[in-house]
Simulated assay, not measured.
Amino acid sequence: MTAFPVNEISLGIESFGPDDAPLVLLAGGTTMLSWPDALCERLAAAGRRVVRYDLRDSGESTTADPESPSYTLRDLAADAAALAGALGGGPAHLAGIGVGGMVAQVAALDHPGAFSALTLVGTRAVAPGPVDDDLPDHDPATMGRLFARPMPDWADREAVAEFAATGAEILGNDPAAARTTAARIWDRTPGTAPAVQLANQLGIVFARLDCTPRWRARLPGIGVPTLVVHGRRDRFFPVGNGEAIAREIPGARLLVLDEAATTIPAAAVGEVAEAMLTLG
């Protein structure tokens, strides 16, 4: 892993595969560890240069003030385009997961020349806040259970990992995998201040961003091959959100993972990698 300078900040990146291979750029949601190691390795083994990166205020990227971010969603989209250009090799296949999927949509719209293909995983076409009437919102019972839990002691690595595991169980993800990933994120988090930990573990900083203007109406303008991946058991962004994106981007392919929730489970890595590789 290393820090890479773009747009007067640094982004934490990790690379897999040969530097001269076609680039697949994976935007974190919010940290790069949202993308499974096995998926990165599978894509690299198929002849791709895979670079996963942390969004601002997470992981090894520049941390400023997660409680009051001075940047916008469009700035995060510009980061993706600048990173793709700086890494070289021509237009990149851009992939985003969760909130990183929102970044990827705006990046493809605002910087179309930077990207040759788009993969959107477990995301939706509207920013945090009230959802459009035709889109399913977060499952209320699930949200109630998630936010009824007391916050952990952020200075206690094991407590944070256990907090992530119980959250994964509520969301329908693998608790053991979530525990391992949370511990890795904790190890990379610059400090134990609650705001910084929330930005890294839960992505709360994203809810404080300026996400205007709306971009959903612009989705028909995306002109690159697009794959939309969504878990059928996703209670955070229910599958209707992915279905809507796939309808609204011309020619997009929808891949619904019947046994998945908000993350890419180990059993689905091969299917997702194969689908991504068909885009180029």
Rank of each mutant, 00 (worst) to 15 (best):
M1N: 01
S10M: 03
S15Y: 02
V24I: 15
L26H: 13
A27F: 02
T31W: 01
W35E: 11
E41C: 03
L43W: 13
R52G: 03
R52D: 05
R52L: 04
Y53K: 06
L55E: 06
L55N: 11
R56L: 05
R56S: 11
R56G: 00
T62E: 09
E67L: 13
S68M: 04
P69V: 00
P69D: 00
Y71V: 06
L73Y: 11
L73C: 06
A77W: 01
A80F: 01
L83Y: 02
G85W: 05
G88C: 02
H93M: 09
A95I: 01
G98D: 09
G100P: 04
G101L: 07
V103N: 10
Q105D: 03
V106G: 07
A108R: 09
H111M: 04
H111G: 12
H111K: 08
F115T: 15
S116L: 10
A117P: 02
L120W: 07
G122S: 13
G122C: 04
T123V: 04
R124I: 04
A127N: 07
P128I: 15
G129I: 11
V131D: 11
L135A: 14
H138C: 13
R145W: 02
F147P: 10
P150C: 14
D153G: 09
W154N: 08
D156K: 05
V160P: 02
E162P: 01
A164Y: 02
T166K: 10
E169L: 12
I170Y: 01
D174L: 05
D174I: 06
A176Q: 13
A176S: 14
A178E: 12
A178W: 00
R184H: 12
I185T: 09
R188L: 13
R188P: 09
Q197Y: 06
L202Y: 05
V205E: 07
C211G: 14
T212I: 10
W215L: 09
P220S: 12
G221N: 10
G223T: 07
G231W: 00
R232L: 14
R235I: 10
F237M: 15
E243H: 03
I245A: 15
I245D: 14
A246E: 15
R247T: 07
E248G: 09
I249N: 12
G251S: 03
A252Q: 15
R253A: 06
V256L: 00
D258I: 03
E259A: 12
T262Q: 11
T262E: 10
I264C: 14
I264T: 13
I264D: 00
G270C: 14
G270F: 09
A275N: 15
T278N: 15
